[in-house]
Computed example of a mutant assay.
Amino acid sequence: MEQPIIYVDADACPVKAEVEKVAERLGLVVTFVSNGGLRPSRDPMIRHVVVPKTAADAADDWIVENAKANDIVITADIPLAARAVALGAYVLGPTGKPFTPETIGMAVAMRDLKQHLRETGESKGYNAGFTPADRSRFLGALDQMARKAIKATE
């Protein structure tokens, strides 16, 4: 089987450098998918895909069309996470929180509830800031997840 590929929903992703670091250590290809604005890498293991800005979910759609079981998807986008989990991909949020078949339903429900509360004015919708602890937790979680994905493809 082929080695897993790491797909990154790269627009506003705060952990691109950490993804590159883990991928380089483990010899994995990374594909950053965005609407533009990313500086291309000279590393042949780092790919950039720029999708048209015409569709709001163009990057998400591209990732879902290309990822497969045992690949890794990095995203904070809950609907994309749900779609990737359904493919059998490993999915990790930038704070190091994995999305799994067991947890994705609750994540979708919480997202929908928070959106409803924002729309009705009952919540201001503030998100917690991204912390150094989140970055550290992400690094450890991605390393562990990538090793598990590699083992699953052997």
Rank of each mutant, 00 (worst) to 15 (best):
T120E: 13
R83N: 04
V91R: 02
T103C: 05
D77C: 11
P101M: 08
Y126D: 14
S136C: 09
A133S: 14
T103R: 02
F138I: 01
T95S: 12
R111W: 07
D134I: 00
R83T: 11
D112F: 09
I104R: 00
L117S: 06
L87M: 11
G129L: 10
Q144V: 12
M110D: 05
P101K: 12
K114T: 13
P79M: 10
E102S: 14
M145W: 09
R137D: 09
L139N: 00
K124V: 11
R118Y: 08
P98L: 14
R83W: 05
L139F: 11
A81L: 09
P132H: 03
G105V: 11
G93L: 12
G88P: 08
R83M: 10
M145D: 00
R111S: 09
P101I: 07
I104Q: 00
I104E: 01
S136K: 15
M145P: 02
I78H: 01
T120L: 08
A84S: 13
M145F: 08
M110N: 12
Q144S: 10
R137P: 04
P132S: 08
L80Y: 06
A76R: 07
K124S: 09
D134N: 10
E102C: 06
T103D: 04
D143C: 07
P94C: 13
L117E: 08
N127T: 15
L113H: 05
A76P: 00
L139C: 06
T100S: 13
D134F: 06
T103S: 14
G125I: 15
G96T: 01
T95K: 15
L139V: 15
A81F: 05
R137I: 12
D134M: 09
N127K: 15
A84E: 02
A86K: 04
G140V: 03
M145E: 03
A89D: 02
D77R: 09
P98E: 12
Y126G: 15
K97H: 10
G140Q: 01
I78Y: 01
A141R: 02
L80S: 10
R111T: 12
T120Q: 13
L142Y: 05
D134Y: 05
